[in-house]
């Protein structure tokens, strides 16, 4: 190992990537690759965990027992997905609690969609349909990501998330065919969540500083704009089918390319929310920090008890 220089290791590494051989935790990897993964996977994990809050907000107010159970199960899955992802981050030598502390200090980011408030029951539908829909577009290619533990976690996540989008769409369908008040509630949720959902794919390719290297390393398999286009193409007909209107007056179908063309995204809003100036940034992070601080005595107690019991056992 000492005899081989770094550029040789890097060449061999890239060769493995090109041959679609997965990289595993103890394999040699360039430091940038490791750091990129730590950043991306922990952001992804934080998004799952912070993402529990806007939906968790409606569990106690779900309109019937079936919807309540489904919403509970879905939010719980998000906790599970966060955990699978933190578990992959730890294989890269990052410590879960330190990663979480970065979230709480504002150093680490998460998907900005969760900084928008959920103000009506229809938002549970819109989130499942649009936000989970967008997340799936992002996540399915990640199942083939070059880093083994991340790819395996994503396979699990994608399998479990298949019901998430459906339950959201089912809520929207029910509202869209309901009373005028319900239909209005659904349209209002679509109006509020459409553009933030498009922003979930990140800046345009020309503006995205990480994309090229990540594609080369097969951490990312499609660019932001490609994924966004796939999402628009898939979602617009679904909205039409249930009689809701996409809030984009410039949206049109291009017969030649077979794709929908969207109006301009308000990137100023996106960057403001990323910077921390969205409607709920502070509440979301404060809530997570409080949960951890309030739970600290519980964590300590369990450790203390485990230590006492270990002594008693060996005595």
């Amino acid at each position: 190992m000492k005899d081989i220089n770094i550029s040789e290791l890097e060449r061999k590494f890239q060769e493995k990537i090109d041959k679609d051989i997965k990289i595993e935790p103890k394999d040699w990897m360039p430091d940038d690759y490791r750091q990129t993964l730590i950043r991306q996977i922990s952001q992804h994990a934080h998004s799952e965990i912070v993402g529990m809050l806007p939906e968790g907000n409606w569990i106690t107010r779900a309109p019937n027992l079936r919807r309540k159970a489904v919403l509970l199960a879905k939010v719980q899955d998000e906790a599970g997905h966060g955990l699978y992802l933190y578990s992959s981050v730890e294989t890269l030598g990052a410590n879960r609690e330190e990663t979480i502390d970065d979230l709480h200090s504002g150093k680490a980011k998460y998907s900005s969609i969760f900084n928008y408030p959920t103000v009506s029951w229809a938002d549970m539908g819109a989130i499942g349909w649009l936000v989970d829909g967008a997340a799936i577009m992002n996540q399915v290619p990640l199942c083939r990501c070059s880093y083994g533990p991340y790819a395996r976690a994503m396979v699990r996540v994608c399998k479990e998330e298949s019901f998430h989008q459906r339950q959201g769409f089912e809520i929207m369908v029910q509202l869209a065919k309901g009373t005028p008040v319900q239909k209005e509630m659904a349209q209002d949720a679509l109006n509020r969540f459409w553009w933030p959902s498009l922003m979930m794919f990140g800046p345009n390719d020309a503006e995205s500083k990480h994309t090229a290297q990540s594609v080369k390393w097969k951490i990312k398999r499609h660019t932001n704009d490609e994924l966004r286009q796939m999402f628009v193409d898939a979602t617009v007909p679904q909205a039409e089918l249930i009689g809701l209107t996409i809030p984009d007056k410039d949206l049109k179908f291009n017969e030649e390319t077979g794709h929908y063309e969207s109006g301009a995204i308000n990137w100023d809003e996106f960057w403001e929310v990323v910077k921390g100036n969205g409607p709920c940034n502070k509440d979301r992070v404060d809530t997570r920090r409080k949960a951890k601080e309030d739970g600290m005595w519980v964590v300590e107690a369990a450790n203390a008890y485990a230590a006492k019991r270990a002594i008693r056992k060996s005595a």
Partner: peptide, 12 residues
Amino acid sequence: HVGSLRAADAEM
């Protein structure tokens, strides 16, 4: 093997 998690003791 399916993944990892944190726990204070084996039972947990």
